[in-house]
Amino acid sequence: MKNKIKSTGYVLFVLITFFALTKAFTSYKNPLNIYENPLVWIALIGFVGVVVLKEIVNFMAIKRATQLQNEKDGIVPEPENAWLKRLLQSWTKSKAIEEEQEIILDHNYDGIKELDNSLPPWWVYMFYATILFAVVYLVRFEVMGGDTQEVEYEKAVAQARIEINKYKATSPDVFNVEDLVLLTDAKDLKRGKAVFNLNCASCHLKDGGGSIGPNLTDEYWILGGGIKNVYNTVAKGGRTGKGMIAWDKTLKPADIAKVSSYVISLQGTTPAKAKAPQGEKWEE
């Protein structure tokens, strides 16, 4: 009678909860939104939990009943880890201590005897695998002339260079200082002047005569003249501790190239108030 009441209660719980969840999923717009419908989640977790718990209890009850019946019938069941022992046995071919007399050899050295154990199958299979690998390796590299690690490395480097050059060709903001040339187009110099007035004029003045920074209109340069040196100076900054900041984190490489070309275009101009020369005279 007690079991019938439990079973009836379980069935009613499952049916009612299932009906309620179905109703919620068909009625609510977002039934699984835990903030809008927390009761749906509570019901769902309770439903799954009760079903799983019921199945666990049933499994344990059946297992216990089978164990009692086996004890009653005098049946000794196979150990739970018997499959693991059989697996180890198949992969090692080891003999139990009780069976060692079957594989003992006639050798006897001062009472020390030797067993004729078989090589473990896993070891034999690995040995065969190394032979197969050696044959494939020999044919691949010595007969068919396959690429060595050095050749593979050189090919990978060459491919990487091709991809880098392709990227540089399609990306206007990527610059190689070694390929940099002086820009003389009016549009580029106009952009360079705008960048200069916005970022550089506070230290060098708008006409390049120099204030905190050096005069940019004469032939003397602290870190070297020419488009490449000027570009590096603008991008990486001046002398440590007393030079200007590095602008490569602020300006795009294209703008650095344009402002550098504009700075060189100031050579030979006459600023209103020129600062005394600094550095060494630069000649191309």
Rank of each mutant, 00 (worst) to 15 (best):
130 T>Y: 05
148 T>P: 00
88 L>Y: 14
83 W>M: 15
72 K>I: 07
72 K>V: 05
124 V>S: 08
66 T>K: 07
142 E>H: 07
87 L>H: 08
69 Q>I: 11
143 V>R: 13
93 K>W: 10
133 F>C: 06
94 S>L: 06
64 R>Y: 12
78 E>A: 10
68 L>A: 07
134 A>M: 10
131 I>T: 00
122 W>L: 10
98 E>N: 02
80 E>H: 10
144 M>F: 12
78 E>Q: 11
126 M>Y: 10
125 Y>L: 13
131 I>P: 00
116 D>G: 10
67 Q>L: 06
135 V>G: 02
142 E>V: 02
106 D>C: 00
63 K>F: 14
133 F>Q: 05
72 K>R: 11
127 F>A: 12
73 D>R: 01
65 A>Q: 05
99 E>C: 00
76 V>A: 09
75 I>Q: 02
112 I>L: 13
135 V>T: 03
70 N>E: 09
118 S>E: 15
131 I>D: 00
130 T>L: 06
64 R>E: 10
102 E>R: 03
105 L>I: 04
99 E>H: 00
70 N>G: 00
71 E>Q: 08
122 W>K: 04
126 M>I: 13
95 K>Y: 10
135 V>N: 02
93 K>N: 12
113 K>W: 11
73 D>K: 04
118 S>P: 02
65 A>T: 04
95 K>I: 03
61 A>V: 10
67 Q>I: 06
92 T>K: 00
86 R>I: 15
107 H>V: 09
110 D>C: 05
106 D>T: 03
76 V>G: 01
65 A>E: 08
135 V>W: 02
109 Y>I: 14
91 W>H: 01
113 K>Q: 09
126 M>S: 14
103 I>Q: 14
133 F>E: 04
137 Y>H: 15
61 A>R: 09
116 D>K: 13
129 A>M: 14
148 T>W: 02
140 R>N: 13
128 Y>F: 01
144 M>T: 07
129 A>I: 14
109 Y>W: 14
78 E>D: 12
101 Q>V: 05
122 W>I: 09
79 P>K: 06
116 D>M: 12
77 P>T: 06
64 R>N: 11
138 L>S: 13
97 I>D: 04
67 Q>K: 09
62 I>R: 09
136 V>L: 15
138 L>Y: 15
134 A>F: 08
116 D>I: 07
66 T>E: 12
94 S>W: 04
116 D>S: 12
125 Y>M: 13
116 D>T: 07
75 I>R: 00
77 P>V: 08
